[in-house]
Amino acid sequence: MTAKRQKMSFSCILDIGVPFETEKQATIAKRTLEQDPILKPDDLVVRYEVNTSSLDMHFEAISDRVLRVAVSSVLESLKTVIEVIDEFE
């Protein structure tokens, strides 16, 4: 993992885990978010993973700025997903 990061020269890395009530909810969030393509794959890599009922997001970016923009955009979308689940499940 470490070796790969160095090769790709992604210096800014962030992991966020969001706990959900059920694994189904976390899967819905993952499948909703992962569809939209990354506009600049050379600058940013995002991975989503569901571990039991938690959505683990892994961001790797070439700069703080790219990382901040990506994380805030994903969190904004995640808020909509959570609101939908909260309201309509």
Binding site: I28, Q35, D36, T80, V81, V84, I85, F88
Partner: peptide
Amino acid sequence: LQSVVIAARALSQLW
């Protein structure tokens, strides 16, 4: 467009 499709996708899986 993207902000609305997020809701559509979540709803489609939920229901």
